[in-house]
């Protein structure tokens, strides 16, 4: 689904990435790579397939959109040491991102770590739009992630829960992309403090514009 944000045209992709056709840029947030092994460190042996699943999905979207560039919007790894736990195959998949002139926005899980080949920023302004990991009070025309927005709908007694984009013309928050990332319902107070009368775009086979 195409929307206008800050005078630019964007594509909300059903996979959960934001595509900026003008710049051929894919923006993706909260991959939380190696979350599985992070828990394994503490003795909870989550299936070790999350990084592979996340990166394969990401590469397939990059191909589908014929994107030239990528911007990761923070919390790319679940913890500071995540990168060093990448198994060989996953490491190859990760390094393939270097073909896309990757931009790294620092998230709260990332600390000071930046993988080589990425241009890192705490905050970045691009075409008049601000890119932050976590939305900042007072910042205008800002695109961020961090909160993992999801929408919960009860329809005909079936409860559906989907990750979603949430946007009010001034701020946009991206869904989390990582395979093991849960979500925070958009009804949560955190969102009320950031956005006013937001529009919700739920992920599915296509994007669903939902009123809440």
């Amino acid at each position: 689904m195409k929307i206008d944000f800050g005078g630019h045209e964007f594509l909300l992709h059903p996979s959960g990435v934001l595509f900026w056709p003008e710049k051929s840029l894919v923006i993706v947030s909260d991959l939380h790579l190696e979350k599985g092994s992070h828990f394994a460190l503490r003795g909870f042996f989550l299936p070790p397939y999350d990084t592979k699943e996340t990166l394969i999905r990401l590469h397939s979207v990059l191909n589908e959109l014929s994107a030239q560039k990528i911007l990761v919007l923070g919390d790319t790894f679940h913890d500071v040491k995540g990168f060093f736990r990448l198994p060989a195959e996953e490491r190859k998949l990760f390094d393939k991102l270097l073909r896309y002139e990757p931009i790294w926005i620092k998230g709260n899980h990332d600390g000071d770590f930046v993988p080589s080949g990425f241009k890192a920023f705490k905050s970045l302004v691009l075409g008049g739009l601000v890119f932050n990991h976590e939305a900042k009070a007072g910042t205008r025309l800002e695109i961020s992630g961090h909160f993992h927005p999801k929408v919960e709908i009860v329809h005909k007694k079936a409860r559906i829960s989907r990750p979603c984009f949430i946007e009010d013309g001034n701020k946009m928050i991206l869904p989390s992309f990582g395979a093991y990332t849960g979500g925070l319902p958009v009804t949560h107070a955190s969102f009320r403090h950031i956005l006013q009368n937001p529009r919700i775009y739920a992920l599915g086979e296509k994007i669903y514009n939902i009123q809440i």
Partner: peptide, 23 residues
């Protein structure tokens, strides 16, 4: 509280079922 940074077991189920369905 607040930010739900825990994972949901449904997501783990989906990934495990895809990669190792006889686990």
């Amino acid at each position: 509280t607040g930010r739900q940074m825990t994972f949901s077991s449904d997501l783990i189920y989906d990934v495990l079922n895809k990669y190792e369905s006889d686990h």
